[in-house]
Amino acid sequence: MDFDINAWQQFLQDNWIIAVIALVLIFIIMKLVKTVLKWVLVIAVVVGFFAYGGYSIKDLENIGTKVTSEMKDQAIKSMAGEAKEATYEDLADGAYVIKTTNLELTGVKNSGEITVKLRGISLGTWKMEGEVKDFVVKARAASK
Rank of each mutant, 00 (worst) to 15 (best):
Y88G: 09
K138H: 09
V36C: 09
A95T: 06
A75M: 00
G130W: 05
L12T: 04
A83W: 00
D134S: 15
V47A: 08
A19Q: 12
I57Q: 00
V97M: 01
L32R: 14
L118H: 11
A86D: 05
W126C: 02
V33H: 08
A51M: 15
A7I: 03
L32I: 13
S122T: 05
A80C: 10
R140A: 00
W126G: 01
V40Y: 14
D14F: 05
A19H: 12
K99R: 06
K144N: 09
V20S: 15
Q10E: 09
S69C: 10
L25K: 07
Y55D: 05
A19R: 12
G54R: 04
L103F: 00
T65H: 15
D93R: 09
K34P: 03
S143R: 01
K77P: 04
V136Q: 02
G64M: 05
I76D: 00
A92E: 15
K84L: 05
W16D: 06
V20H: 15
T65D: 15
A44T: 05
T87M: 15
L91N: 14
K66I: 14
D14I: 06
F11V: 02
E89R: 13
D93E: 10
N15L: 01
K99F: 00
Q9V: 14
V42C: 02
L32P: 10
N110K: 04
D93S: 10
I57W: 00
F50S: 09
K117F: 10
M71I: 09
A141Q: 04
K133F: 13
L32F: 13
T115V: 06
V67Q: 11
G124Y: 05
D2W: 15
Y96S: 01
V36M: 11
T101K: 02
E131R: 07
W39G: 11
L23V: 14
L91P: 09
E61C: 08
G130H: 03
K77L: 08
V137Q: 11
L41R: 04
M1Q: 15
S56H: 01
L123R: 02
L37A: 05
V24I: 12
K138S: 08
K99N: 00
K144I: 07
V136T: 02
V33T: 11
V45L: 03
G120Q: 07
V33S: 07
T100V: 01
V24P: 11
L23G: 13
I121D: 08
S111W: 08
I63G: 09
V136A: 03
A80D: 08
G130Y: 03
G112M: 08
L105C: 00
